[in-house]
């Protein structure tokens, strides 16, 4: 992943063979300042990628035509927010179907009934049943990384596979609402369960 970055630095170092100490120092400084925010393993954080997924899902949800028009595309975080400022910075200036994206943080599911996407953190897994029950009659895409989220009736569950963030979809839960998920999203999912499709493993 960082291969591109390190190769460019190697080229710079061996390039102009002028070998002035100051030049070498400059390059060294550059490699420290010029590199972006990175952990020792040079990988993005799990929750930054999940935040990006939430933004992305918006492009693949089809809201029913007779739905009341809303001014914003709301992505709501119910309870604990493990993503923080990254979610806000990713959402800044974004639009879904002409509606500007807005991040709302709410304390319980009842307040999320008017959202487009609702995210529940894994650390709140004790509340899943009550939160999902509150959202049952709303057209909200429910997403979580709580274990067994799909079995509780959630729609999209984040799964970590080989250090990569993937997601699984429960179509039964989606079909209970008026939401329709694009087949492009289903194609990329790790697994799709529900009586509309046999259990599929990717």
């Amino acid at each position: 992943m960082m291969r591109g970055m390190s190769y460019s630095l190697v080229r710079l170092r061996s390039g102009p063979a002028t070998g002035i100490l100051r030049l070498a120092a400059v390059l060294l400084l550059c490699s420290t300042w010029g590199s972006p925010r990175v952990e020792p393993q040079a990988r993005p954080a799990e929750y930054d990628v999940k935040a990006a997924y939430l933004l992305n899902f918006g492009k693949f949800i089809r809201v029913p035509a007779n739905a009341p028009p809303r001014e914003h595309f709301d992505i709501c975080v119910i309870g604990t927010d493990p993503m923080g400022r990254v979610l806000d910075s990713l959402a800044a200036g974004e639009q879904v179907e002409g509606r500007p994206v807005r991040i709302r943080r709410v304390t319980n599911a009842a307040d999320a009934a008017t959202c487009d996407i609702a995210y529940l953190s894994a650390s709140d897994s004790a509340r899943i049943d009550s939160e999902l029950a509150a959202l049952r009659s709303s057209d909200v895409l429910t997403v979580s990384d709580a274990p067994n989220f799909l079995e509780h009736g959630g729609m999209i569950q984040f799964v970590l596979v080989a250090q990569r963030v993937r997601f699984s979809v429960n179509l039964n839960a989606v079909h209970r609402t008026h939401l329709v998920l694009s087949s492009e999203l289903l194609r990329v999912a790790l697994s799709v369960t529900g009586n509309a499709a046999a259990e599929v493993q990717r």
């Binding site: 990006a52 910075s89 990713l90 970590l160």
Partner: peptide, 18 residues
């Protein structure tokens, strides 16, 4: 993180994370 914005769903699923 901001670079993640421009990635597709498939690409997001390919990144190794901490």
């Amino acid at each position: 993180p901001r670079q993640l914005k421009s990635l597709s769903l498939a690409e997001l699923g390919q990144i190794e994370v901490t």
